[in-house]
Amino acid sequence: MLEIKQLHANAGDTPIIRGIDLSIKAGEIHAIMGPNGSGKSTLSNVLAGKPGYEVTSGEILFKGRDLSEMEPEVRAREGIFLAFQYPVEIPGVNNSYFLKASLNAIREHRGEPTLDAMDFLALAKEKMSHVEMPSDLMNRSINEGFSGGEKKRNEVLQMLLLEPALCILDETDSGLDIDALRVVAGGVNLLRSPERSMLIITHYQRLLDYIVPDYVHVLADGRIVRSGGKELALELDQKGYGWIEEQARTEGHE
């Protein structure tokens, strides 16, 4: 599904990712953990194609194709979905209108028939029930005046509607109370399937109690410094990131 080879990338002019290798197969769930500033969000932005983030060397293959030349909307249509850490508020743009435009752009790309307003609303209603989202949020401007939890639900709702091949969750747990976390994780778990991969970026182990990963990687200073199974997350939770950062620094100077 996703092959990252010796990736180096900048955020603006600053080198952040300094050599990442990562392979995610269909159906796998990978978690990336790491302290603040380790490059977690840069990695997700690079994968989604955010302007201002530049691959300086190495490559990213998605379903065997080089991502670097693809516009963000093309990546989305090909099946990459980034759930934002801070979903953007867009005044004046109706949430329902946006979701329908998005879904139809992607369905068209897949060669599926587009949905009319009625069919779309029926589908959206069904998906909304999975994330316990109040129906009036559909008729508001995108994320405007939404609580933190409502914004994250809206992200997962989009994921449920678009059914991407690769879901990237960028600190989806941040700012969520335990009930909201359970609902959001429940929505994500509905998407688990042998054809779908997930990359879960998080600072805390907490989310991984609900969305159990197959692999855990620790990112420090722009590199993956340790990989393991789900038990690695627990170890980090107990010991913190200090020891790993220390290790990364020593290795970096070798």
Partner: peptide, 12 residues
């Protein structure tokens, strides 16, 4: 906002 919309498949 522009990136947000594009990341959902909406053409620039």
């Amino acid at each position: 906002a522009l990136f947000y919309l594009r990341s959902r498949g909406v053409e620039e």
